[in-house]
Amino acid sequence: MTYFLTQLANGLSYGLILGLIAVGFVIVFTSTGVLNFAHGSVLLSGAYLVASLQGPIGFWAAAAVGVVGAAVLGVLINALLVRNLAEANPGTAAILMLGVDIVLLTELTRRIGNNVLSIGAPWGADVVSVGGITLPTSRVVAAGLAIVVFGLLWFLFARTGAGIAMRAAAADSDTAAMMGVRPSRTGAAGWALAGALAAVAGIFLASFPAPGVAPTLALSSFAAIPAWVLGGFDSVVGAIVSGLIIGVVTALAVGYEAELHFLGRGLGEVVPYAVMILVLLVRPSGLFGRKEAVRV
């Protein structure tokens, strides 16, 4: 039972981090219609900034720079590239992001080399134990912070003019523009938010129990794609809930791999996608998705 609860807690905390990434996918998609294949390298850029600056300027300052840096990177990608596509449609935008991903990842790989850069977070390798369940402090902090961030997102989208304008533009950008909402601004805000969330997720994905910042960190955004799809492309709530689902399911599949051996080895890899396909069969627009997505 303790074992189960430990895995569950693990899965939940991991799921909340996945949620941060998946929400970034949602916001970029709803604000600019882009399937952001470069999300992983934006995440890595943020984490890299933190890791390389935490020595000289301390962790908290570095974290702030990393989050802002990733947000700025997102805004630049949108302003310089996405908005200048010869032919703006989701298909070409997605492939454009693949190109961006190649460039960013190559440069970051060159800079990081085969080092594993320490993120230098104050919680180090501490753990918290409650009733036999042991969880790394970083995960507890991550879970707490993710919940706070989601709360802030709720406040932003439900209470502030800018957030409501973003929701309006996401629902119907044409009409929103007629009301004076500037699409360039909501797009930039979306990319900035997504970049910042990715950097936050990156900091925790590079914290203990993970070793630090390595190029493979960029791949962690792939793990959030099933969560994004499962929740529906345009639902922030969906992304958060499905992040939790995927996190828990993955943790349990890995934790009980021995018992599930008849399904083949390496189950943790396929289970998120299996869940995603099964849910899509029942609900073709995901758990919380509203409209069907645009075609390529």
Binding site: L205, A214, T250, V254, G268
Partner: peptide, 14 residues
């Protein structure tokens, strides 16, 4: 595991 799994919590617990 695969190279992209960098968090070994679940494996360690198991």
């Amino acid at each position: 595991i695969t190279p992209k799994d960098t968090d070994m919590s679940a494996q360690a617990s198991a």
